[in-house]
Computed example of a mutant assay.
Amino acid sequence: MDFDFSDDQVQLGDAVRKWVDKGYTFERRRAIEKAGGFDRAAFTEIAELGLTGLYVPEDDGGLGMGPVEGMVVMEELGRGIVMEPLAQSLISGAVIAGYADAATKAAWLPKIAGGEALVVLAYQERAARYKLDVCEAKATQAPGGYVVNATKSIVPVGDQADAFLVPAKINSQIALFLVERKSSGVTTRGYGTQDGGRAAEVTLKNAPATLVTTDGLTALEHAVDIGIAALCAEAVGVMDKTMAITAEYLNTRKQFGVFISSFQALRHRAADMKMQLELARSMSYYASLKLNAPAPERRAAMARAKYQLGQSMRFVSQQAVQLHGGIGVTDEYIVSHYFKRLTQMEMTFGDSLHHLGEVSARMQDTAGAFA
């Protein structure tokens, strides 16, 4: 199998890397973090690169690209630990394009592609524990459409987004709705997250909603799988940069008059970090290549990928801090921010223990050495 990127994909990655290096410096990130964890101007710059329209069809104003291009972009954003949630635009663009009616597509896809509208997935509930079929939100028909009653937690930039994709039950069936943040009955409570980003609790009380699809669970699973693939790629970028920072530190820090990179024990630990990084990279490729597979195959692949990425993220981030010593946990030093980002990513879209259970549940009867 050929894993070389096309010329267009290489150029796309180069363009994003140049923007991250020049336009999203560590100093700018620190300023955005102190200002609340989200910068609309930075998100607009991402949109001007065309990235918010990656998964939006060309007929709707997007680029009409696929999972590999999404993976390339998210890796580069990961290297700069960019906090603005491009993955949410990828999710909303793909889900609305794939499941909504023509009127909803015409109303929202051009705005998502152009960056005028930031639409985020608001699906987590307190009782769900990462299970997508657990949903207490309710939707009822009303004159002119539907109204939704729900409380959703840890919604990315929920108090800054323009609209939400919200799963809610119609009778006993989960459907997916689009709710504008400025609609009546919508309240948000924003807060900073551990990695410096931003999230919110979103409460909907008889909030007017547009029905995206009555097959909400299928659409929600697809949305989360897009998010997992994007997160896996982003995590590879974060780990790649973490590894580079750590290697640079080992090659410049001296102890007993010599560079600590000459210590065999530390070299072995760095080699183990590199091995985990490459394992993660291969599973990120696997996730992206399976994103358009049939749903059962896709869901199994995402669980496998997220489990391996979770293991790798924990190992690489913890080793990086330990190899740096005390400076590795200070807020002023860059590696601590990579550590916090990787720690939070491990728990996003399901932690490692959850996905280990998903892998186990999806194993075939013939799996195993003694089948």
Rank of each mutant, 00 (worst) to 15 (best):
A209F: 03
Q344G: 15
Q160F: 07
A369R: 07
K18M: 14
T218Y: 12
A142P: 08
E346L: 08
S89C: 05
T193Q: 03
Q318Y: 05
H337Y: 03
K105C: 00
M71E: 09
L309Q: 10
V316L: 01
V72G: 00
A35D: 15
L86Q: 04
A247Q: 13
I228P: 04
G326R: 11
F38T: 12
T218I: 14
A168H: 01
A295Y: 00
E45I: 13
T218W: 05
K22G: 14
V147Q: 04
L231N: 08
E136W: 09
I174V: 07
Q318M: 12
K111A: 03
D225R: 03
R281G: 08
D351V: 13
R30Q: 14
E332R: 11
G328F: 04
V155M: 03
Y99T: 12
Q322D: 06
H268E: 14
A229N: 12
A42I: 15
L277R: 03
A102V: 15
L12I: 06
A42L: 14
I32E: 15
Q11R: 15
A102D: 15
V68A: 09
A35Y: 09
A161E: 14
S352R: 14
G50H: 12
L12A: 12
K152P: 00
F164L: 11
I228V: 13
S89Y: 02
G36T: 10
T188N: 02
M302D: 04
P156R: 02
D225I: 13
V119C: 00
A31F: 04
V119K: 02
I334Q: 06
H324A: 10
A128K: 11
Q255V: 13
A271I: 12
A103M: 07
A15M: 06
Q319W: 04
G197A: 05
L90S: 08
P67Q: 05
S312C: 11
A102C: 04
A15G: 13
T218G: 06
G70V: 01
G62I: 02
M363Y: 10
L277Q: 06
I260V: 13
G158W: 03
E33A: 09
V335G: 00
E33Q: 15
E75D: 11
G190V: 03
T151G: 05
V147E: 04
K138Q: 11
V316S: 06
T213I: 08
A100L: 08
R299H: 13
M243S: 10
V10C: 10
V321Y: 06
F164Y: 15
K18Y: 06
V148Q: 00
A107L: 07
G70Q: 02
G145T: 10
S172G: 12
A270E: 14
G98Y: 10
T193S: 01
L353M: 12
G368R: 11
Y286L: 04
T151I: 06
E346G: 10
G13P: 05
M239R: 01
K340F: 13
V148T: 06
T213R: 04
D133C: 10
G62S: 05
R314L: 10
R253S: 04
K105D: 00
C135H: 07
N292W: 01
A235I: 01
A175N: 03
A219P: 09
F263M: 07
L63T: 03
A47V: 11
E48F: 06
A163Q: 02
Q344M: 15
V68M: 13
